[in-house]
Design a binder for these strands. Sequence first.
DNA 1: GCCGTTTTCGGCCCGACTGTTTTCAGTCG
Length: 574
Amino acid sequence: MAVHNADIAEVLYEVADLLEIEGENPFRVRAYREAARTAENHPRSLAEMVEEGEDLTRLPGIGEDLAGKIREIVETGTLRQAEELRKQVPPGLRPLLGMPGLGPRRVRELHRRLGITSAKELEEAAREGRVRRLPGFGEKTERNILEALARGEAPQRFKLASAEPAARALEEHLEGCEAVREATVAGSFRRRKETVGDLDVVACSEDGRRVIEHFVAFGDIERVVSKGRTRSSVVLRGGLEADLRVVPEESFGTALLYFTGAQPHHVALRDMALQRKLKLNEYGLFRGEDRLAGRTEAEVYEALGLRYIEPELREHRGEIEAARKGTLPKLITGEDIRGDLHSHTTATDGRSSLQEMARAARERGYEYLAVTDHSRRLRVARGLDERRLREQMEEIDRLNEELEGITLLKGAEVDILEDGSLDLPDRVLEELDVVICSVHHKFRLPEKEQTRRVLRALENPNVNILAHPTGRLIGRREPYELDIERVMEAALERGCILELNSNPERLDLNDAHCKLAKEMGVRIAISTDAHSTSDLANIRFGVGQARRGWLEREDVINTRPLGELRRLLRREGA
DNA sequence: GCCGTTTTCGGCCCGACTGTTTTCAGTCG
């Protein structure tokens, strides 16, 4: 029934691809892509906005025409234009666009001249040597196509956490080169996006060749894709691609700006430069031949009349406007976090004991750690029943007597049962310092039922926090059907808090939801859901996501000192 | 197809690298 923003985005992306293969005006194609991007990033449901008669043309990149198309998708579940295009352009051509070396022009040629309509047919043609005979193609291209097909080339995205070790190792490797002054992984990694497609590395040096040679000698390289005077591209073991760009010191800021993106953000900056009769490229900001800025990002923003914009905000979601008006948020940082409100121990499915968790939290400089083991329904985790939970509560009391410099909060992560009731009796919940509730089963309920279930759980006056509110696992499990806006309204009304789960597999709430929560005034808890002492460090991923969601210290409950936190958890002054 | 502290029409980011060229188109980021 409900048409999600992701569905709308997918139709628009498809139209863009098919139009591009047809050879349409590239700016028209871009307009569809930008509208798709707007749709997928918009925190509110476009379907709802249509139903409520709101004006979609106020969204960036959406004019009368595209607003009408979005309305059509919402109302009919499809778009006539897309269906027409599918008749003209075989949909099997679309995946070919993603293959290295193949763009719209070449895909069109493959279709027109060789009648190719799918990857399979392309493979046959390449094997038979028919591809190399096309004008503009050659042996090398044909071989690359076959190799890509053999690798089962599906452009993969890597979770931020899994790309992080390679990113740090690369930075270190490059900084070990004498010719390098500074090296930074930019791109979506620097924007702390939940997944990254590749690593974009910018190095500052006067000797490009030497740096490139050093770069391709990095230990974990599977193959070198390209290698020039100032840039090179390699595939690391594990399949992650890394692109290096070397620039002189006076260009480091503009290069960083360019390679950090996101592309629409950077395009908007170039546009602003043009309006001022300036030119912005990776080498600097120029008026004619004069370089006005380039050494640092900050001086470029300043020269364009903008406040400095943190990388996590550079998604073209209103940050430029805010930078112009001076209304950018002061983003939360890791230092603002005073404690963790979601953790497990060996009492259930954790791998570290209560004491170990407490000490590890103290070592991180935290004031408090909430111990929130599972409730009985979660059999696989040996969830606690009332008796075992009471034992743990006593142990925590004892431990709090002994421990200095950290306070353990008594808590539980209680399952929300299918009817919205909770898996532990109120008489024990009301004795806890913090009660988290979450959905761990029956993910496939229809949206209405799932929403009703969660809303009912939030009605329980003992509940403080809704954990991993959408239940998604990045790349593995879609969020369950839930009217998140209604949940947020209820949370606001009842003084409940929504969790931003920092587990890099979850990062749930996502960035757009965080922004929506902030706009609505709903408070967030950034928690790790740690199952071992080392998991506590995952907080950095949550903080990154929170920054992407424009959150400030005030928006996040576990930036508060313990006394204030306790008052909030009792919902006083909520 | 969108958009406007120059504009309602005429713009729309721009440079490096590869492969196939013999002066450059296509792709990529």
